[in-house]
Each structure stands twice: as C-alpha cells, then as structure tokens.
C-alpha cells in the first residue's frame, strides 16, 4: 500500500507563510509522499519560490512538483526550479522520478501541460503562426508526458500535471475557458501508458473527480477545489482502510 498526498495552486507568497505548515507537519503520519500540481507561487518570482520552500520543504517525506502557469509569470521558471531543487524538492518537466515506498516502486511522470481544449471544442494546429505555436506547444508537451510515462516500469504510475487532461474535472468552470484550462492531448498521453492515477490543478472552480477516455482516474487537486491542505490517495491497496492513522 502506498499513500500519496497531493495539492495544487497553493500560490505561496509571504502572506501565506504558516497557513499550510500545521497540516503539513502531520503529513508524514498520513502519507508517504507529497505531490504538488503546479502554481506553487503567485507571480513565479525567486522570492516566492523561497517562501514555498519555507512552507513546504523539510517535511520528512519526498516532495515532487510540476510548475504551473503562475510559476512562469516572471519568466524566472528556471531559477524557481533551482530554488526548489536545492531544497530537496523534485521538479518534473517531461521527466520522471521513482520513489521506493514500503517495498513498492511509485513512478511519477510530470509536465506543466498546456491548453488547447477537448473533443469537439479544441484548437487546431492550423492558420496563423501564433495559433500553430499555441497548439504546437500543447502537442510537444503532451508527447513529452507520454514518453516519460512509457519510460519507467514501476508498481504504480502517476501522471502529474498542472493543466487538466479531461473536461470532467472542469465542471463548474465557464465552458468558454475550457480550452485555456487543459487539453485532450494530455489525456491521450496518460491513456498511452499503464497510468494508475492522474493528478492536476489549475481549475479553481472545477470538480474533483473524473476519468480519461481510457478509464484512468483523474483528480483535480487545486486547493480551492479540495478545500483542505492536501488530499490523500491510496494506491496498491492490500486491504480497504478508509480512516487515516492520525485524527
């Protein structure tokens, strides 16, 4: 059995310091690792990244993250990643990490992802250069996710993105902005591998639960959606246990 905690869109800045920490201090009693589904910061500055590390670092369990669109706002995403990595947080963008937990191998493949929309209402790689750049970016990122997911053999495989891979978890958002919240290409990449769980954020007004066309469970862990410091998911269950150890 493996338990993973997950949250996204925590948008840490100085004003958030201390809000998550009490719940995070309890995390090692509840989960074996913490996955962060992007938008760690508010404006993507190095100073905010340091605030994030102060709040989410040093937990005693592995922390694995992807960046979100907010983390790109100041064009300092490389330096933001460096700050996280230097503190021991693993940052994924088209690559993977494997965690050995209780004798099981948990594989995590991550990308930020991008928009583009879903079946019947998706953008096409056609027309103006700007449009082709937009959809072309989506396609490249989704291909990197697919390759990453296929590159490891593990007991449980998790896809971690910021943008949504399915429209199910966008329910509650205006239909008009679905194309800016996710894309079907991410879902197709997830379905191309034996993925056990897909986690994403980004859609603050969306819904928590969905499935890819191939049947992979999808969870929107954006903080405003889950309304708690993190959710906990249990994989490779040997027996059903609905109660957490700590109360």
């Amino acid at each position: 059995m493996i338990r993973i905690a997950a949250v996204g869109d925590v948008h840490v800045d100085k004003d958030v310091l201390g809000r998550f920490r009490p719940a995070l201090e309890e995390l090692p009693e509840r989960a074996d690792a913490l996955l962060i589904a992007g938008d760690l910061t508010r404006h993507g500055t190095v100073e905010e990244a340091r605030c994030f590390v102060t709040e989410f670092g040093g937990l005693g369990v592995p922390v694995v993250a992807v960046l979100g669109n907010h983390d790109h706002q100041s064009d300092q995403q490389a330096r933001v990643s460096d700050v996280l990595t230097e503190s021991g947080i693993t940052v994924l963008e088209g690559d993977t990490t494997v965690l050995e937990l209780h004798g099981h191998r948990l594989g995590i493949a991550g990308v930020k992802g991008f928009g583009g929309g879903f079946a019947g209402a998706s953008a096409s790689n056609f027309g103006e250069r700007e449009m082709k750049d937009f959809v072309g970016t989506t396609e490249v990122i989704a291909e990197r996710l697919e390759n990453a997911l296929k590159s490891i053999e593990v007991d449980a495989l998790v896809a971690l993105t910021h943008y949504a891979p399915v429209p199910d978890t966008l329910l509650g958002e205006p239909l008009e902005i679905y194309a800016f919240l996710g894309c079907y290409q991410l879902g197709r990449a997830i379905d191309a591998a034996p993925t056990a769980l897909a986690l994403h954020g980004h859609a603050h007004h969306g819904s928590e639960r969905g499935r890819t066309p191939g049947g992979v469970p999808v969870r929107n862990v954006a903080h405003p959606v889950i309304k708690q410091a993190y959710n906990v998911y249990q994989l490779l269950t040997e027996h059903v246990d609905a109660e957490l150890v700590a109360s």
């Binding site: 009490p22 719940a23 309304k227 998911y233």
Partner: peptide, 14 residues
C-alpha cells in the same frame, strides 16, 4: 479564504 486544515479521510484509488 481557502481552508488549509489536514484531511481526515483517504481515498482508495482502484
């Protein structure tokens, strides 16, 4: 203000 308390339940993924 989004609540930030620890969870009380775990979801089994199957």
């Amino acid at each position: 203000i989004t609540r930030a308390s620890a969870p009380s339940e775990v979801e089994e993924i199957s």
